[in-house]
Design a protein around this nucleic acid. Structure first.
Length: 386
DNA sequence: CGCACCGGGTTCTGCCATCTGC
DNA sequence: GCAGATGGCAGAACCCGGTGCG
């Protein structure tokens, strides 16, 4: 895709921010207007000692059932919604249908996030409009809602959403970045503005502390390389950075460079998982006869290795070693670990079939796309026949 | 042309805990 | 005390192809 949609998106943004001032409050559209049983009984008997426990709104239950909502699931998730006297399930359904959502998708949305039916049409219209600043079609939004209803419906604060969009733009993120961000980590946009600011400030502080000259650029880089960063807790990010720094005895500038590179993705991992992976990686590499300095070098050149769980990593290494590759070769070309164990196993077999010599030719052949690999194998096989 | 190097794409919700305001 | 709003957590890699160089 070219830059055209991006430009349109930004234009859209300005226009709708302007339009928004003319929004008025529209009264809540009601669908299930039947009062709960207890409220319907006009007079309560005097001798009834306690106010009645609110019961479920029966017409609402019927409506939802007719719509194909998984009522037990919904009830388990947000029981309070079912005790409300006024809800807007029909309004929601009509609204979503108008945006192109199928009845099945609508039912699934309500089943998974029942509170959606408490939103007014006006609220949804406005929120949708804000999302449309970033997405070019309704269908895109529908697909996100189908995937993650909570991201759209959890907050009732449209003003906050708008402020978030402005804030993210102010960080220098362009419309393509915003699009990726909202597609991939929609929750970012329903975070409170304060929470997002907190993370950004943390990242800026880290950059400055490590002697970085351009905290703004640093933040932009981190976010666009790790779209999930803003839905992580600052505690997680802080703790992971500390873990890495102390375990690897990194200098400030080394750490800074790593964070701006691939290591950014590692910040996502839960604190324990990262520690665990670090430990088992160290043990495994030491057990293969390498030095501690090799481990540091390995992680610096290939940070993504920390993403790989202990079992997977072990299996991959063992399978490479069994295939006649040395640990030294792996340390030099760690990217061969990018590929799945299954893929690696298959390639090793094919290479053996054509008598590939890793000592002579190296192992780069393993780090290449399927297409290229197969083309190479074909060539090697042909030269065997001749 | 073939290869090594490298950057980038995809991927991530659904649940629980805690607060807040009525 | 309730429901709503919001924060935070667990879970855990794989693959493709552009590009520049010899």
């Amino acid at each position: 895709m070219a830059a055209v949609p991006g430009v349109r998106t930004l234009l859209c943004l300005h226009r709708s921010v302007f339009l928004q001032r003319s929004f008025g409050l529209v009264p809540l559209q009601l669908a299930s207007t039947c009062l709960p049983r207890k409220l319907c009984s006009a007079t309560t008997r005097n001798n009834e000692p306690k106010p009645p426990v609110a019961t479920e709104n029966e017409s609402l239950l019927e409506n939802l059932d007719l719509m194909g909502v998984d009522v037990p699931m919904a009830r388990q998730r947000q029981p309070g919604v079912f005790r409300k006297a006024f809800t807007n399930e029909h309004g929601l359904a009509q609204f979503l249908q108008g945006k192109g959502a199928s009845p099945q998708v609508i039912a699934s949305i309500i089943s998974r996030y029942p509170r959606a039916i408490t939103r007014s049409i006006a609220h949804m219209e406005q929120r949708w409009k804000l999302w449309r600043n970033i997405f070019c079609t309704d269908a895109e939004i529908v697909s996100i809602l189908a995937r993650s209803p909570e991201s759209f419906f959890r907050s009732s604060d449209n003003e906050n959403l708008e402020k978030n969009i402005h804030f993210l733009i102010s960080l220098g993120l362009n419309s393509k970045d915003l699009h990726r961000l909202l597609t991939t980590a929609p929750r970012t946009f329903s975070n409170s503005l304060a929470l997002n600011k907190q993370m950004v400030e943390l990242l800026e502080d880290i950059c400055t502390e490590l002697g970085g000259q351009n905290p703004e650029r640093f933040v932009k880089t981190i976010i666009s390389r790790n779209l999930y960063i803003l839905i992580r807790s600052t505690k997680r990010v802080k703790s992971n950075i500390d873990t890495l720094r102390s375990a690897l005895k990194l200098t400030d500038s080394e750490l800074l460079a790593l964070l701006e590179g691939q290591l950014g993705a590692i910040l996502d991992l839960s604190n324990e998982y990262l520690k665990n992976n670090l430990n088992s990686l160290q043990q495994k590499i030491i057990s293969l006869g390498c030095r501690k300095s090799d481990i540091k070098k390995l992680i610096i050149s290939y940070p993504v290795i920390l993403y790989i769980g202990p079992e997977t990593l072990s299996a991959k290494l063992d399978c490479l070693l069994k295939g006649g590759i040395t640990i030294k070769q792996i340390l030099e070309k760690p990217r061969v670990l990018d590929y799945s164990t299954q893929n690696i196993t298959g390639r090793l077999e094919e290479l053996q079939r054509v008598g590939y010599d890793f000592k002579k030719n190296g192992i780069n052949i393993l780090d290449t796309s399927r297409k290229r690999f197969e083309a190479k194998i074909e060539k090697l096989a042909a030269s065997l026949d001749n």
